[in-house]
Design a protein around this nucleic acid. Sequence first.
DNA 1: GAGGTCATTGTGAGCGCTAACAATTCACGG
DNA 2: CCGTGAATTGTTAGCGCTCACAATGACCTC
Lengths: 348, 348
Amino acid sequence: MAHTRLRPPTMADVARQAGVSHQTVSRVLGDHPNVRDATRARVLRAIEEMGYRRNFSARALATRRTRTLGVVASDTTLYGPASTLFALEEAARAEGYLVSTVSLRKLTMESLSEALDHLSEGGVEGVVAIAPQRSAVDALAELRHPFPVVIVGGGPGVDIAGVSVDQHLGARLATGHLLAAGHRTVWHLAGPEEWQEAADRAAGWRDTLESAGVEPPMLLRGDWSPLSGYRAGQELAGWVGRGLTAVFVANDQMALGVLRALREAGVRTPQDVAVVGFDDIPEAEFFAPPLTTVRQDFSAVGKQGIALLLDLIEGRPPATAPRVAIEPQLVVRASTFPYAAQPDGTPL
Amino acid sequence: MAHTRLRPPTMADVARQAGVSHQTVSRVLGDHPNVRDATRARVLRAIEEMGYRRNFSARALATRRTRTLGVVASDTTLYGPASTLFALEEAARAEGYLVSTVSLRKLTMESLSEALDHLSEGGVEGVVAIAPQRSAVDALAELRHPFPVVIVGGGPGVDIAGVSVDQHLGARLATGHLLAAGHRTVWHLAGPEEWQEAADRAAGWRDTLESAGVEPPMLLRGDWSPLSGYRAGQELAGWVGRGLTAVFVANDQMALGVLRALREAGVRTPQDVAVVGFDDIPEAEFFAPPLTTVRQDFSAVGKQGIALLLDLIEGRPPATAPRVAIEPQLVVRASTFPYAAQPDGTPL
DNA sequence: GAGGTCATTGTGAGCGCTAACAATTCACGG
DNA sequence: CCGTGAATTGTTAGCGCTCACAATGACCTC
């Protein structure tokens, strides 16, 4: 059944058809208690017959609530941001809110400002920004906006409310796992300096080594892409036999590149070098070898983020601290432990 | 600068401040020609000073246009849907539209219906559905909705307007590439029967073989996941030496699983078995070996989809056929051609 | 300088809904 | 059979904007 392009019926039309006032129709739709059952039934039948739907704009104008939230994101084809976006939308919908998304190619001051303007013109009541880069967080802190903003993935240290996974803890889990397996030291391929998460993971790695009395080796940097991991992997391969036996890579995609470079250099994983990633993308289990990694609970991030934003919108004191941290989880696979199970459950 | 929670200024407030009527303010905002420069400047200054922003709901109510589009999607953490979503949002924003997204876990009749309701309550003027499954397309065709709907990825054969990549052509490119390389026949690991794209790719594969006078071998099925590819790969490994030298896998993730299973079975790629995937996810270049695959232009899909929807909304005759097909592109890498370049440009 | 034209600005009436209040109806005890 | 309070329904007035039209004024032309 396709759509029709006639002028849609209004509440008044329904009221006439049902023989009541428009206000009674409004009451029925609003689930008000004081409506006689017979009346309610008549109204509902009229609504059904006419295919009536409440006009969003009129309602929003009268109530001064659009029940719409905005989300600003970037890199939405990456697993992490995509998962976060999904979780946010789902959580918001569960609360009866609509979500308008703006996906940016780059999170610059300018593009962020335009995104907020665009959403503001769209009447959003609040915005969640998936802003993993420090500069984006700073920009957000500086920009004026007539609604509350919650940052997801921004890390601590700003005065904007936010939710994120505890990256430092994740890095400690990864690094500690490698040390516990007997490695003397752990190398680290970090993400871009600009990214808060990259900084937190690097800090967690460094702190773990230092508490274990180990001098951290040289830190490598990539840009999250498999290619940058591949390049770093080629460099790392040169250190094998000179103290390099374990690498903590700041995300799974770069770890994929590292694995390939090591393989091409004749370095075996995990026998010669153990590798740990971060994110637990769906493919990680099928890398060669399956990748030990750190899983983040994006769904929890989404729920908490929306909850926090709604508290701010309602003017309630937030139910949680203004900065929520979600606990990540280590997933052990064959890239650090040759006896880890195969994808289908059989041992290697 | 955080937000403030005072009652925001209205157009009338601005008008008073600027010493004009509210209508003049409206004209300035609407870029109407007939406003004296001095007046316009005064109004703009007042707007700036008061931090005025036009009220979205009032505007939408008066114009009967929300300038909001809806998108219904599922599996948004997969590369294809995520890319499509991104492209749609970007294209819509370029046209000045806001995009409200609903991401579903499953595309059932019920969830689709709820999604359309949700968007309808949100006042969208039209909806793009990323509906790669046949049942979803059928459901969409049956559901009532007071706005136009465009389907993306649904394939031909329905009476709903839509845009999709020419999957049949993509499959012909992949299969033809393998035949041209001298393979006697090509096996196929297909996606779920339910998916239109899976059916189209299988048909393209079958047609190519048949036009070459080759009897298509047994068809295997997976569910797009690496795990299902891994399982199928184990089965395929059993056919090596009995006529199996080339496999066309319906997506890159399953191809990843196939590669792993083959490797574990001691089968070399591409020397013993050549493998082609579909999608060209960013990781494909870093698989072991780098994967030959078919690239889809999601950005074009997004642009065309939005253009088509806007035509429908405006009541214009669509600028293009009601079903647009975008051409895919073969990307040759080492999984079919051992001399293909390395990620960093050096030959293998 | 009367009359006409054009550019510029103002006025009034909605858009379709909800909130606040007013009016009506009903049940029931005295 | 009437009064009383509660339940139910109706009436009115915006919400903040745009549209259609009216009004004003500036500028020409003859």
